[in-house]
C-alpha cells in the first residue's frame, strides 16, 4: 500500500477508535449513537435483509447514470457543435441545478409514482449536469492549432469529433462522471425518503422511526460502499481508456 493509502487507513482507524471509545466511556445509548463495531455487525448480520433494498437503490442509481449518459453526451455534443444552442440552453441547465432536488422530490413522486421511476429520475437530474458541463468544457478546450490541422485535412465534423474532440474531452468527461456517480446516491435516497416501499432510503426512514439506529447506520454503510464501488469502477474504466495521459 502506498503512503497516501496508509495515511487514509490510519486516519479512519483513529476516528473509529475514538468513536468506539467515546460511546463506551460515556455509555451513550445505542439508539442515539451506536458504536462502529455494532454498526459493522448489524451491516453483516442483517445483510440478507439489507441486500434486496441495496439492490433496488443500486438499480435506481445505475439506471440514472445510464439515462444521464444517454442524454448528456448527445446534448453536450449538440451544444458544442452549435454555440447558439449552448447560449440558449445554459440558463436552463444552471436553473435546473439552482432548484434543490429536495423540493422536486415530492412532486416527482406524485407524477411518477412510488416505484423506481421517480428515483431514477431524481438520480438522472443530479448526474446529468456535471457530465454535460464537463463534457462541453472538454470539447471546447481543444487546441485551435489541432482544429486548423483537421480542417486542412478536409475532415468532416463527425470525423473530427471521433478522432480529435472526443478523445481530447475524455479526461474532463471522466472528471464529470466521477462527480456524477458520487452524488448519484443522494438523488436516489431522497426519492426513497419521500415515498417508496423499498430501497436503502426507505429502510433508513423505517428504522429511524423505530429508533433502530444501528440499522440506519448499517444502511448508510452499504450506501457508502456502493458509492465507493461506483467511484472505483469509473476510475478503473478511466485508466483503461485514457492510456496516453501520462
Amino acid at each position: 500500500m502506498n503512503r497516501s493509502g496508509l495515511t487514509a487507513l490510519g486516519l479512519i482507524t483513529f476516528l473509529l477508535a475514538g468513536w468506539e471509545g467515546a460511546v463506551r466511556i460515556w455509555t451513550v445509548p445505542v439508539f442515539i449513537l451506536p458504536p462502529p463495531s455494532l454498526i459493522l455487525k448489524t451491516a453483516v448480520v442483517q445483510a440478507p435483509m439489507i441486500l434486496p433494498h441495496a439492490a433496488v437503490t443500486g438499480a435506481e442509481i445505475v439506471l440514472g447514470i445510464v439515462l444521464a449518459l444517454a442524454t448528456a453526451i448527445p446534448l453536450a455534443i449538440a451544444m458544442f457543435a452549435r454555440p447558439v444552442l449552448e447560449k440558449a440552453l445554459s440558463p436552463f441547465l444552471v436553473a435546473s441545478q439552482a432548484i434543490p432536488v429536495f423540493a422536486l422530490a415530492p412532486l416527482l413522486v406524485i407524477w411518477l409514482g412510488y416505484g423506481m421511476a421517480s428515483k431514477v429520475f431524481m438520480a438522472w437530474i443530479i448526474i446529468f449536469f456535471p457530465i454535460t458541463v464537463s463534457l462541453v468544457q472538454g470539447l471546447k478546450s481543444c487546441d485551435p492549432e489541432y482544429r486548423t490541422l483537421f480542417s486542412l485535412m478536409g475532415a468532416s465534423f463527425l470525423k473530427t469529433l471521433t478522432l480529435l474532440y472526443w478523445p481530447w474531452a475524455l479526461p474532463r468527461f471522466f472528471a464529470g462522471l466521477r462527480v456524477g456517480v458520487s452524488v448519484a446516491t443522494i438523488g436516489a435516497v431522497i426519492g426513497e425518503w419521500v415515498g417508496a416501499q423499498q430501497g436503502l432510503g426507505f429502510l433508513m426512514i423505517q428504522s429511524n422511526a423505530r429508533l433502530q439506529t444501528p440499522l440506519v447506520f448499517a444502511a448508510i454503510l452499504w450506501l457508502a460502499a456502493m458509492g465507493m464501488a461506483l467511484w472505483t469502477l469509473v476510475g478503473t474504466l478511466e485508466k483503461k481508456i485514457i492510456t496516453w495521459n501520462t
Binding site: E145, L149, L152, G154, N245
Partner: peptide, 15 residues
C-alpha cells in the same frame, strides 16, 4: 484549405 498541407512548430501529434 483543400490544396495545402500544414506544418507547425509543435508536432501536433495526437497522443
Amino acid at each position: 484549405g483543400s490544396l495545402c498541407a500544414y506544418m507547425h512548430q509543435k508536432d501536433l501529434l495526437l497522443p
